[in-house]
Design a protein around this nucleic acid. Structure first.
Length: 300
DNA sequence: AACTCGTGGAC
DNA sequence: TGTCCAAGAGT
């Protein structure tokens, strides 16, 4: 197990047996929806999965693929439709950015998702992680996909720490690149396999070490599972924050079929100053469109 | 670089 | 309305 290729074999074998059957993971050969553009399906799934659990993403993803099977289809819709169909996935600016990305793909890339990391990352809402993920999973590009799961597996298995640092370091990316198998196809599968190991076994709060295929190689376990000493990512407050108020305002607008008078928004939060500030920020973000006579709606 | 941007489930 | 967490991005 000290050998890198043995580590590859062990985790890839575990993945082949234990991986969840998620729709956006279907291979091009096994893609069941001929009308749905597969790279687009992968891209949408990755944006939806940003900070959001799989179980909540899956039904929304299916509905998005039914309504908007290609970037051009979403680009032809109103941005407000994307926000409404986003439902309660959270961080609704992601829906707006997905719509903007679809527009950019339609107008600047001929409706074809660019198959290189630089052009992918230039799209709205696509950062380092998502560009690498789409590159690897949609196009087989050999690139390290470093999400929080990968970082946690690296921290425990290699570094011997219980948790990764609050933010991604260059050293972590370099380590992920060093661990990548040589072949393009193996590298792509390796990326998703390590992510899956972090999601199903090497969990943040309650690691399932008894189910871990690389337990005997884990630096953290071999060190006696020492408690975390460094700084952790701080947990954000929720109650009473602008994020809560924005969520309540947008909830009203999502559930309405047309324009909503201000009086319908006033009832969601007692603090008028905070309410007004949040409504203004939603308008500034492009998530809400103000109309005449104090009426509001999702953007047309 | 620290901060903001939703939401709901598991403890 | 407790704490922690979930395939981050943008500023």
């Amino acid at each position: 197990m000290s050998d890198l290729s043995a580590l590859h074999d062990t985790i890839l074998t575990w993945y082949a047996a234990q991986a969840r059957d998620l729709p956006w993971r279907r291979s091009p050969e096994a893609w069941p929806w001929p009308e749905v553009d597969r790279p687009w399906a992968v891209l949408v799934s990755e944006v939806m999965l940003q900070q959001t659990p799989v179980v909540r993403v899956e039904p929304v993803w299916h509905e998005w693929m039914r309504r908007w099977p290609t970037p051009a289809a979403l680009a032809a819709a109103a941005p407000g439709d994307a926000v409404r169909e986003w439902g309660r996935l959270g961080y609704p600016r992601r829906a707006l950015r997905l719509h903007a990305a679809a527009t950019a793909i339609a107008q600047e890339h001929g409706g074809v998702i660019p198959a290189n990391l630089e052009d992918l990352q230039a799209l709205p809402g696509i950062g380092t992680y998502t560009a690498a993920a789409v590159g690897a999973f949609a196009f087989g590009i050999r690139s390290a996909v470093v999400d929080v799961n990968v970082r946690r597996v690296e921290a425990r298995l290699v570094t011997g720490a219980e948790h990764p640092a609050p933010s991604l370091s260059a050293a972590e990316t370099r380590l992920a690149e060093e661990l990548l198998p040589a072949g393009d196809r193996e590298a792509a599968t390796w990326n998703v396999a390590v992510m899956e190991l972090g999601a199903l076994v090497c969990k943040a709060k309650t690691p399932q070490c008894e189910r871990c295929p690389v337990l005997d190689a884990c630096a953290w376990v071999l060190a006696g599972r020492p408690a975390h000493d460094g700084p952790r990512k701080r947990v954000q407050k929720w109650a009473g924050t602008d994020r809560q108020v924005r969520g309540k305002l947008l909830h009203v607008l999502r559930d309405a079929s047309g324009p909503v008078p201000r009086s319908k928004l006033d009832v969601v939060w007692p603090d008028a100053a905070q309410r007004d500030r949040c409504l203004a920020s939603l308008i500034e973000d492009g998530l809400v469109e103000p109309l005449a006579r104090e009426r509001f709606r999702l953007p047309a």
